[in-house]
Simulated assay, not measured.
Amino acid sequence: MKSVAHVYPWDIIGDPGAVQRILDLGVDAVALAASYHTVRAATPLHPEHRLVDARHAALYVPVREQAWGGRRLTPAEPSWVDGPDSYGQARDALKAAGLPVYAWTVLTHSSRLGDLAPEVVVRNAFGDRYPYALCTAQPEVVEYALTLVREIVEQGQPDGVVLEACGPLGFFHGGHHEKTEGGDWGKVRQALLSICFCTACAARCTEAGIEVDTLRAQVRNAVDAGEPDSVESALGAELASALAAVRTSVVAQLRALLVGEVRELAPQARVIVHASADPWATGPFATAAPELGVEVDAVVAMCWPGPEASIPGIEALRKLAPGTRIAGYVLALPPKPIEAAAMRAELAALAAAGVQEFHLYHAGLASGARLAVVREALDSLGQRP
């Protein structure tokens, strides 16, 4: 059983006690953000500040001219941390204490780049663009993701790479001050609103024999007709199957490309992918259906809702990727209670369901009381050396 704590570079830099707090958790490794979206982050235990306002997506290794020069999709440097290589600074501090460091790499979530290049973002059936969601059917986005991974591996020298949003985002996981709840769109309609009609996706659909205008009309009608039982019932089994094949193949190609790049550049590094077995899944846990298709060291299942809600997804991932290590993304923040017994029970239930490592979110955002809960829960499962 392994455990991995997630942190941001600013959680480590400037805090002499941060590394020891992570060591005290008893985790086996740290997932350190190397590429991340905009966030307003609490730093409850940092000696110098209580909040960090990361105002746009950024790359936390140097943005080198030789890699990015002349490209429209170029990541920004962060102005809220000192120096051009905050990932490297934090990595060195963690590794000096004997902690392996994984490069936590968010690939396609960037409102800044979506605003700069609106034609390469996800566009729904109504023509609405999602500026935070770079569409991986777009060759320019694929090249951006490949360069991002290459730069992080070459400069960051990580012990592992965690690929998040390895596929397009969709309706969910949107913008600031989200005000969409009143639409009463359930999971199926959110999936329908995540179907992309950008030029690249439309071209792929046409190549697959799908009449794009007909598909668009059916999606629009289904969204406005009330909550369907499934995407398949909304679109019809034949059309849904053809569309799912197009969408999953796009993500599979990206996943194979990026995993292959990591394997070539850093053969000894662990490769970990956030994934879902749902063929319509978008977002941080993009679809890996109908099969994973690449050899990775672990696939991470979303487990924030707790074991009862998460176990079906874990079991589906196991069927989709037999023989691959299953990790669980576990929330240590609200609305989870500050109760060691509850955390122990949650980890035990996930382990019984086949989870073989825990990815704990988040060692920098959590209060001291919450870190104590994590420490006690890991103790109870024999996690600590």
Score class of each variant (00 low, 15 high):
residue 1 M to P: 08
residue 3 S to P: 04
residue 3 S to V: 07
residue 4 V to T: 05
residue 9 P to R: 10
residue 11 D to E: 05
residue 12 I to S: 00
residue 15 D to H: 04
residue 15 D to W: 01
residue 17 G to N: 11
residue 18 A to R: 00
residue 18 A to L: 04
residue 28 D to M: 09
residue 29 A to M: 08
residue 35 S to K: 14
residue 36 Y to S: 06
residue 39 V to N: 06
residue 45 L to P: 01
residue 46 H to K: 08
residue 46 H to M: 09
residue 47 P to S: 13
residue 48 E to C: 11
residue 50 R to M: 09
residue 53 D to Q: 10
residue 58 A to Y: 01
residue 59 L to F: 00
residue 63 V to A: 09
residue 65 E to I: 07
residue 66 Q to L: 06
residue 67 A to I: 15
residue 67 A to T: 15
residue 68 W to H: 06
residue 70 G to C: 13
residue 74 T to S: 06
residue 75 P to M: 00
residue 80 W to S: 10
residue 82 D to I: 06
residue 85 D to S: 05
residue 86 S to E: 06
residue 87 Y to V: 07
residue 87 Y to H: 04
residue 87 Y to T: 06
residue 88 G to I: 08
residue 88 G to S: 08
residue 88 G to M: 08
residue 90 A to C: 06
residue 91 R to G: 04
residue 100 P to G: 14
residue 101 V to G: 03
residue 102 Y to A: 09
residue 103 A to G: 03
residue 104 W to C: 10
residue 108 T to S: 15
residue 110 S to P: 09
residue 112 R to I: 04
residue 113 L to H: 03
residue 117 A to F: 00
residue 120 V to N: 04
residue 121 V to F: 02
residue 122 V to P: 04
residue 123 R to A: 02
residue 126 F to I: 05
residue 130 Y to G: 10
residue 130 Y to M: 11
residue 132 Y to I: 12
residue 134 L to I: 02
residue 136 T to E: 12
residue 137 A to V: 01
residue 140 E to Y: 00
residue 142 V to S: 06
residue 144 Y to S: 02
residue 145 A to Y: 00
residue 145 A to V: 03
residue 149 V to R: 11
residue 161 V to A: 04
residue 164 E to N: 11
residue 165 A to Y: 12
residue 166 C to F: 10
residue 168 P to T: 15
residue 169 L to H: 15
residue 171 F to L: 10
residue 172 F to R: 15
residue 180 T to F: 10
residue 180 T to V: 12
residue 182 G to P: 00
residue 183 G to Y: 10
residue 184 D to L: 13
residue 186 G to W: 00
residue 189 R to Y: 10
residue 190 Q to S: 15
residue 193 L to G: 03
residue 195 I to H: 11
residue 197 F to P: 07
residue 199 T to N: 12
residue 202 A to E: 15
residue 204 R to G: 08
residue 206 T to A: 12
residue 212 V to R: 10
residue 212 V to N: 07
residue 219 V to Q: 01
residue 222 A to Y: 12
residue 227 E to N: 01
residue 228 P to G: 13
residue 228 P to A: 13
residue 229 D to M: 13
residue 237 A to N: 11
residue 237 A to R: 09
residue 237 A to Q: 14
residue 242 A to D: 10
residue 246 V to L: 12
residue 250 V to I: 14
residue 252 A to Y: 04
residue 254 L to V: 15
residue 255 R to S: 12
residue 255 R to I: 12
residue 257 L to A: 15
residue 263 R to H: 12
residue 269 A to R: 10
residue 275 A to T: 06
residue 276 S to C: 02
residue 280 W to G: 01
residue 281 A to M: 15
residue 288 A to P: 05
residue 297 D to N: 14
residue 299 V to P: 07
residue 303 C to R: 00
residue 303 C to A: 01
residue 304 W to D: 11
residue 305 P to R: 02
residue 308 E to V: 08
residue 308 E to S: 08
residue 312 P to C: 00
residue 320 L to S: 01
residue 321 A to D: 00
residue 322 P to D: 01
residue 323 G to N: 03
residue 326 I to L: 12
residue 326 I to E: 01
residue 327 A to Y: 07
residue 329 Y to W: 14
residue 331 L to V: 07
residue 331 L to E: 14
residue 331 L to G: 10
residue 334 P to L: 13
residue 334 P to S: 13
residue 335 P to V: 08
residue 338 I to D: 13
residue 339 E to C: 07
residue 340 A to K: 03
residue 346 E to W: 02
residue 346 E to Q: 09
residue 347 L to C: 05
residue 353 A to C: 01
residue 354 G to S: 11
residue 359 H to R: 14
residue 371 L to P: 04
residue 374 V to I: 14
residue 376 E to D: 15
residue 378 L to E: 03
residue 379 D to Y: 07
